[in-house]
Amino acid sequence: MIELIAQNPFIASLVALVGLGLVFGALLGFAAVKFKTEGDPIADQIESLLPQTQCGQCGYPGCRPYAAAIADGDDINKCPPGGEATIAALADLLGVEAKPLDAAEAAVPSVAFIREDECIGCTKCIQACPVDAILGSAKHMHTVIASECTGCDLCVEPCPVDCIDMRPIETNLQTWHWDKPKPVEDLIASDRGTAAKSGAAA
């Protein structure tokens, strides 16, 4: 047997390759059982990047379903609340090209506001809110827990008296900060006049 193998290089290589194949196959099979991961780790990672507004603007009923859809190959540019930052993060995670947002514009962070003297207490908005951020009961005025509101605007549509506004979150003294300076190296030629002038002044 051994002699046969030794004398026939063809058989020798065949044996070696098959043997290697078996060894690595067994190794992989063992690893698959031993290091089995529960759930869908990619979908989890994707979900952790989504803004969790649960707004459904992507066409899925919440962030988790959209994360699962992305993991299955859906586009990464369907999340207006996340905007370019989320797309960039997703592109980074998945190693794909970042695409422009699939919407007119990124959503401005905002919070729902019920004009309370117009609220008739119909509870429709409460039923619509994906994160239970509206308080109130039937025939009693409702109000939004601003700190829990994700700004998804799902409550605006159901309101029969249109008493819900989406108000952009305003800057206050606590949240105000300096913006990043506009990089002057990126000045385009049309700005040249001003840049040169102030440069000369310096």
């Binding site: 190296e185 000045l187 385009i188 030629a189 040249r192 840049a195 040169a196 440069g199």
Partner: peptide, 10 residues
């Protein structure tokens, strides 16, 4: 590159 020439040559 459409950049201000004088500014950068300086």
């Amino acid at each position: 590159r459409k950049r201000p020439i004088g500014f950068y040559l300086n």
